[in-house]
């Protein structure tokens, strides 16, 4: 038996919007720790990891570990039927091939349940060891989204370089080139508007903008984003979900050959 009640249902709607472009089908794993998902995109270039900790739910019952295969487009269709202030409850019985999403309006005058068929998904789970990164950049998520969008109108790839001067995003295409430098800026009114660079050593890596743009679908989940870079590792783009967990995206770099 599984029953997860999330008062801030809009959060789940945003989570689906954040991952459905990158991944078509995925297994949602439910355990005492929380509600999680790990999935690669179809070309095995990027990976998304989601965690919603059990403590973040108003009610969290998960009698035994359960993995539920879902088509994310279909989940998104269901969740779009929930109002933005609705309380969302996810329910499943042991051994059942369906999951139920229940939506309650804030004043309890409307209750809807949507039952969705589960599917068998052969998904590969990758081990991601903790790593020390050469540079970690924290910046406003809206700013990062803007940069990725702007640069993708010029080129297909971005070089992200971190030095003690700041973080530089560069691209080149048929019509020209573009460079955007963000300097460390801690002296802002609100901490979420700051750009903070923790650098052990300079690092420069090349990534496909298409994937980074897809990651920025998580922007509504968090005011800030952290970008962790090391020369021999995929970049980690993390959006923290307040009090609950995170959506992390991992993207393998491009190399010169």
């Amino acid at each position: 038996m599984l029953e997860l009640r999330l008062v801030q249902g809009s959060l789940l709607k945003k989570v689906l919007e954040a991952i459905k472009e990158l991944v078509t089908d995925a297994n949602f794993d439910c355990s005492a720790t929380g509600f999680s998902l790990q999935a690669m995109d179809s070309s095995h270039v990027a990976l998304v990891a989601l965690l919603l900790r059990s403590e973040g739910f108003e009610h969290y019952r998960c009698d035994r570990n359960l993995s539920m295969g879902m088509n994310l487009g279909n989940v998104s269709k269901m969740l779009r039927c929930a109002g933005s202030d609705d309380i969302i409850t996810i329910k499943a019985d042991d051994g059942s091939d369906t999951v139920t999403f229940m939506f309650e309006s804030p004043n309890q005058d409307k209750i809807a349940d949507f039952e969705m068929k589960l599917m068998d998904i052969d998904s590969e789970h990758l081990g991601i060891p903790d790593a020390e990164y050469q540079a970690i950049v924290r910046m406003p998520s809206g700013e990062f989204a803007r940069i990725c969008k702007d640069l993708s109108s010029i080129g297909d790839t971005v070089i992200i370089s971190v030095t003690k001067e700041g973080v530089k995003f560069s691209t080149a295409g048929d019509i020209g080139t573009a460079n955007i430098v963000c300097r460390q800026n801690k002296t802002v009114d609100k901490p979420e508007e700051a750009t903070v660079i923790e650098m052990q050593e300079p690092v420069s890596l090349t990534f496909a903008l298409r994937y980074l743009n897809s990651f920025t679908k998580a922007t509504p989940l968090s005011e800030t984003v952290s970008i962790s870079l090391s020369s021999d590792l995929p970049v980690v783009v993390e959006y923290k979900i307040a009090d609950m967990g995170y959506v992390r995206y991992y993207l393998a770099p491009k190399i010169e050959e």
Partner: peptide, 14 residues
């Protein structure tokens, strides 16, 4: 030429 690496080059199945 640029080559796109796979995520599976870095992380392995558990």
């Amino acid at each position: 030429t640029e080559v796109q690496l796979s995520i599976k080059r870095f992380y392995h199945s558990t």
